[in-house]
Simulated assay, not measured.
Amino acid sequence: MHHVYVIECSDGTYYTGYTTDVQRRVAEHNAGDGAKYTRGRTPVTLRHTESFDSKPEAMRREYRIKQLSRAQKEALF
């Protein structure tokens, strides 16, 4: 399975990403091994996930979520 996730950083901002293992990826973000954006914003909290059968499908959804406003992202969860 392929997943798109939204995490909330300690500063209240949101980060959207793609992974095949959500729990591992969130742990990486919290350990400082995730995206450069989240390294100084730990701890992070998982707010939303969506699962897809294919990577291209998940990547398209990740892009669409990244285009949403903050209020639209919050409406997802």
Score class of each variant (00 low, 15 high):
Tyr18Lys: 06
His48Asp: 05
Glu57Ile: 02
Asp53Val: 08
Glu50Gln: 11
Asp11Thr: 09
Ala58Arg: 00
Val4Thr: 05
Asp33Pro: 00
Arg64Tyr: 13
Asp53Trp: 03
Glu62Tyr: 04
Val26Arg: 00
Lys55Glu: 15
Ser10Leu: 09
Thr38Gln: 03
Gly34Phe: 00
Ala27His: 09
Ser10Met: 11
Asp11His: 11
Thr13Ile: 04
Glu50Asp: 10
Tyr14Ser: 04
Ile7Cys: 08
Glu62Pro: 01
Tyr18Val: 01
Ala27Tyr: 08
Gly34Asp: 00
Met1Glu: 15
Thr38Tyr: 00
Arg60Met: 11
Arg24Asp: 11
Pro56Phe: 07
Gln23Ser: 15
Gln23Cys: 07
Cys9Leu: 14
Arg64Met: 13
Arg70Ala: 11
Gln72Met: 12
Pro43Ser: 10
Thr38Asn: 03
Gly32Pro: 02
Glu57Val: 01
Pro43Gly: 05
Glu62Ile: 04
Phe77Tyr: 15
Asp21Ala: 15
Tyr14Glu: 03
Glu8Met: 13
Glu62Val: 02
Gln72Gly: 08
Asp33Trp: 09
Glu8Ile: 06
Ser51Gln: 13
Arg70Cys: 05
Arg24Cys: 05
Tyr15Gln: 05
Gln67Asn: 13
Glu57Lys: 10
Arg25Asn: 04
Tyr15Trp: 09
Tyr5Ser: 02
Asp21Tyr: 10
Ala35Gln: 05
Gln67Pro: 04
Ser54Cys: 07
Thr45Pro: 01
Arg60Ala: 15
Ser54Ile: 04
Arg47Asn: 06
Gly40Pro: 03
Tyr14Asp: 01
Gln23Phe: 11
Met59Asp: 02
Tyr14Thr: 01
Ala27Glu: 10
Gln23Pro: 01
His29Pro: 01
His2Pro: 03
Ser54Thr: 15
Ala75Met: 11
Met1Asn: 11
Thr20Leu: 06
Glu8Leu: 07
Val26Ser: 01
Gly17Leu: 03
Gly32Met: 03
Asp11Cys: 11
Thr45Trp: 08
Ala35Thr: 12
Gly32Ala: 11
Val6Trp: 00
His48Gly: 03
Gln23Gly: 13
Ser51Tyr: 04
Glu74His: 04
Leu46Phe: 07
Thr38Pro: 00
Thr42Leu: 08
Thr42His: 02
Leu46Thr: 04
Asp11Tyr: 09
Thr38Trp: 00
Tyr63Ile: 13
Glu28Leu: 13
Gly17Ala: 06
Glu62Arg: 01
Ser10Tyr: 07
Tyr63Glu: 10
Thr16Ile: 13
Gly17Ser: 06
Arg25Tyr: 03
Thr13Glu: 13
Glu28Ile: 02
Gln72Asn: 11
Tyr18Phe: 14
Arg24Trp: 07
Ser69Asp: 07
Tyr63Arg: 14
Val44His: 00
Ser51Lys: 10
Asn30Ile: 08
Asp53Asn: 12
Ala35Leu: 05
Tyr18Asp: 01
Leu46Trp: 05
Phe77Pro: 03
Asp11Ile: 04
Arg70Glu: 12
Ser69Cys: 07
Asn30Lys: 10
Val6Tyr: 00
Asp11Asn: 15
